[in-house]
Design a binder for these strands. Structure first.
Lengths: 336, 336
DNA sequence: GTGAAAGCGCTAACAT
DNA sequence: ATGTTAGCGCTTTCAC
């Protein structure tokens, strides 16, 4: 910056003012400085700037880089932050709680102006403590919160939509693939979806007909689960896979085994992934508008950075998307 | 840090030394300082540290957050950097060259110790200029380079593997889906794959039978291309989709139209995405070991950060994975 | 082995 | 409207 000041024949404070667009600079000064900046192809040192004021950078803790739904979220954020002059940096973590916490700490150490946590596994108390230190938005069913905002889909309702749909088709015995999680963690999507499933089944008087299949939401996890579902007695006529990726695994295994879908077994996913809409998959699923969710999270974070401190807990309404993998049990209502 | 020094009753210089593990500190001093750090739950200010020395953070320019192959790359990097005490921050960009360049600039402004660019669209000269400023590794067919390293698959060979396979099955008229790109950009995966396709066709004396289908490598792009391929006359009996995601789109459209695969049209992808291996897709594809590629890029970057300046240009050998979407033309060699 | 002090590149009072 | 200067939290000579 000193070089620029010399080149332009002005003080470094003036350079700083021009660069920040601060008030109280003549247009002549602006031109001279900008010309010198150009001539020397000077770029401001973000760290030095960050030592005094904001970094104009927000951090995202990404708990699973493979999940395509999370990619959607990030795209929504990118658009909002980009248009507001904020930069976005993503710190990849794993599913483990320690990994996620250390990634979050690192983001704070880097003096990010705000944090968005995507489906964190940390406990509420811990999240509250982070929220006290830095503006924060959590994506996932985490409300109510004191010191941070949350955005999530109404996963209980989403599960209920699936159950209602299947029951209205005539299904009674329905399986749900749990994503393995500690029983005391009520703030995870898998908890909310399991809860919604159980309640909806109860509402239809089917509490004795539900089957919880322990397993993991992944392609392989879905295949494993499908194997066990076929062996169950009585065998379920429908499966709520919990997530699209798990549904893909289930479908894959069932198809290989010659099980007809949806005639023999109906399958519903969750997330409405792009792949699911395509033939020959045509997966019945629940849409939770990830793009919009990401954009909302970004806007909430900007509000918090601007000073708001009352917590917002936004819940988006999911939509059921009926496609070809669900039908009345035993009935081939549509060709596949 | 001053607080820690007071709490421990020592100078801030000593605190600094202990924290960095610098030589010349008594073990008594170490213990006192560490105790105070613990007691005050002090965390070092990364920006202030970065103003004097390295940040121990590397930046990744991610040109497409949706591409699952890129996720694989990042997982490979995470493992290497994590074990070496480096942090990884991902800056998401779009396919546009300007977007990518500004993201790269921003990474440099943040004083990252090194950069990995995933499939950048910038020109060689521009990349060289960046490589002069900061240790850098480019993932993509960009060699030979002066001031940075590259890692890539041998995309020309990969395309040739597909052509050889299809021709050995008896195909002659084969289509290739171009990912739209400027003709003068030879350093893109799409360019290399197109080149490999053309050369291999020529080698088999089929230069007159090849069909370049302009289009985009995406689900929708694949569907569009499939429509035009069906209309082509003479109609190709096989398609090299260029990328799995495009192949999925092609398959989707062909299935909807009642075209039998592989009997009527054979389809091959590129990338060996996890989804492709599952029934009912079972896509013939080319594996380019993304995980390993990411790990190699990370190691090369660490070497550069450590001081190496001779460029390395690593090329990984791709493997053809034959599955159910390719067969002799007109022949149903395997049930789907 | 330990501490004092200069300085990294900026911003923000404050003075002119 | 412009310039001077004191820090931000750390690292790093250089004395002690």
């Amino acid at each position: 910056m000193i070089d620029v000041a010399h080149h332009a024949g002005v003080s470094i404070a003036s350079v700083s003012k021009v660069l920040r667009g601060a008030p109280g600079v003549s247009s002549a000064m602006k031109e001279r400085v900008n010309a010198s900046v150009e001539a020397l192809s000077y770029r401001p040192h973000r760290l030095a700037r960050g030592m005094r004021g904001p970094m104009f950078t927000v951090g995202v803790m990404l708990s699973d880089i493979e999940n395509p739904f999370f990619s959607l979220l990030i795209q929504g954020m990118v658009e909002v932050f980009g248009s507001q002059g904020y930069e976005l940096q993503i710190a990849p973590a794993t599913a483990g709680e320690e990994s996620q916490n250390s990634v979050i700490d690192s983001l704070i150490d880097h003096q990010m102006d705000g944090l968005i946590l995507i489906a964190p596994r940390g406990r509420e108390e811990h999240l509250e403590r982070i929220g006290e230190q830095v503006p924060m938005v959590v994506i996932g069913p985490h409300g109510p919160s004191e010191h941070y905002d949350t955005v999530s889909g109404d996963d209980e309702l989403g599960s209920a939509l699936i159950v209602d749909h299947l029951v209205s088709l005539g299904h009674r015995r329905i399986a749900f693939l749990t994503n393995e999680h500690p029983a005391d963690r009520l703030n995870l999507p898998e908890s909310a979806r399991a809860r919604g499933f159980e309640e909806a089944m109860g509402r239809h008087g089917l509490s004795d007909d539900l089957l919880f299949v322990p397993g993991v939401w992944s392609l392989e996890g879905g295949r494993d689960a499908a194997r066990r579902i076929l062996e169950a007695s009585p065998r379920p006529t429908a499966v709520h896979a919990g997530a699209d990726v798990a549904a893909f695994g289930i479908l894959s295994y069932l198809w290989e085994e010659g099980v007809r879908i949806p005639e023999d077994v109906s399958v519903a996913g969750y997330d409405n992934s792009p792949m699911g809409s395509f033939t020959p998959i045509s997966l019945t699923s629940v849409d939770q508008s990830g793009h919009e969710m990401g954009a909302i999270a970004a806007k909430l974070l900007l509000e918090r950075i601007a000073g708001r401190s009352e917590p917002h807990n936004d819940v988006l309404t999911p939509r059921l998307i009926v496609r070809g993998t669900t039908s009345a049990p035993g009935a081939a209502i549509q060709s596949r």
